[in-house]
């Protein structure tokens, strides 16, 4: 049997729709709000306290055993140019000048409560740990780099230099150090406590208290409290966040809520694919079998009918022949009688 491509895709679409309607929806697509794992940790970055010393960058480099940069960390000229994350720099301090005074902003993975990277990863290489860290498992990564596209903060980078086993790279919140009871490297090294580590709930309280105590010093906004559904890193600033290059257009909807509806159909289609193909095959097979059976039956009936008809014709012919024979005999008899009579008369 043959299935047209159009028909097949139509079935697949219907199957996906049916699946997404019937199956239990992923929580991202629901109206349920996820406010993070209870007692998860985070970091509050008070931008007004940052002096741009880059101790955090140096500590990050040391604790993660990354290659040393060409320019030393004490070289302030590095700050003249805006920099981005690289496969060997998980955190970056950038300088911007606002109203004549320099403002330093430390950036790294924000460790979203509902990470976009994890929501697009079809091999589940990213995981949000209960302690707050979003960690990456290179052993399952296929290198599609969807995470790099999905991240609204442009955090994940890729080891393009490594030709054989390149990995996605980003800040880990020093998850291995947290397990040992140590602080993240950057936080430990910060001389002005511009970075403070603690439970996210406590950090929010501290941030609110600072805004309330020094309203002239801070913008009345805690960046990361709600952005993209909330992040484990929180920020306080003295100038509007968008002025120092932090996106304020992201909204408060977590990334999975935007994508999971469409994305969670994909594994279902993948899972149902063999079932469907087997079903198609089975249906085609059955139809062929039924058709063959019907054909045989029809032939049998036709043959029988033909045979019956032939027999009937034959019987009728025989009957007719018999009658004709009788008629001939009668006529012969009559002719004989007639001949005998005319002999008597003459």
């Amino acid at each position: 049997m043959s299935i047209s491509r159009r028909k097949f895709l139509g079935w697949m679409g219907a199957a996906g729709l049916a699946g997404s309607l019937g199956a239990e929806p992923a929580h991202g697509a629901s109206t349920r709000e996820f406010t993070g794992h209870p007692d998860s940790y985070g970091v509050l970055h008070d931008i007004t306290r940052c002096v741009g010393c880059r101790s955090c960058e140096e500590a990050c480099n040391t604790v993660n055993e990354l290659p040393k940069p060409t320019k030393p960390y004490t070289d302030e000229s590095v700050l003249d140019k805006k920099r981005k994350f690289t496969a060997t720099e998980y955190t970056i301090v950038n300088k911007s000048v606002q109203n004549g005074s320099p403002i330093f902003l430390k950036t790294q993975c924000n460790h979203c409560l509902e990470p976009a990277c994890a929501s697009v990863c079809f091999v589940n290489a990213f995981q949000k740990l209960p302690n707050g860290a979003v960690v990456y498992d290179a052993s399952v990564c296929v290198g599609c780099r969807y995470c790099m596209v999905a991240c609204p903060f442009e955090v994940p980078t890729y080891e393009y230099e490594d030709p054989y086993t390149p990995e996605v790279v980003k800040c880990t919140l020093c998850a291995p150090r947290l397990e040992k009871g140590l602080l993240p490297g950057c936080v430990e090294s910060c001389p002005t406590e511009s970075l403070i580590f603690g439970k996210r709930d406590d950090l929010l309280k501290i941030a609110r208290a600072r805004i309330e105590k020094y309203p002239e010093r801070y913008v009345d906004h805690i960046y990361g409290e709600h952005e993209m559904g909330g992040t484990s890193w929180l920020y306080l600033s003295g100038v509007p966040f968008k002025d120092i290059g932090m996106r304020e257009d992201l909204g408060n909807t977590p990334a999975p809520a935007l994508t999971s509806g469409a994305l969670h159909v994909i594994p279902m289609v993948v899972a149902l694919w063999p079932v469907f193909l087997a079903g198609m095959y089975g249906m085609a097979k059955r139809r062929d079998k039924v058709a063959a059976e019907e054909k045989t039956k029809a032939i049998a009936i036709a043959v029988e009918q033909t045979e019956n008809k032939a027999a009937e014709t034959l019987a009728r012919a025989m009957d007719k022949a018999k009658k004709e024979k009788e008629n001939i005999l009668k006529r012969v008899e009559r002719a004989k009688e007639k001949a005998a009579k005319s002999k008597e008369d003459s």
């Binding site: 403070i196 580590f197 603690g198 309280k205 501290i206």
Partner: peptide
Amino acid sequence: AFNDKDMHKP
């Protein structure tokens, strides 16, 4: 740093 009892004190 980060005294749990007084998080406001550096």
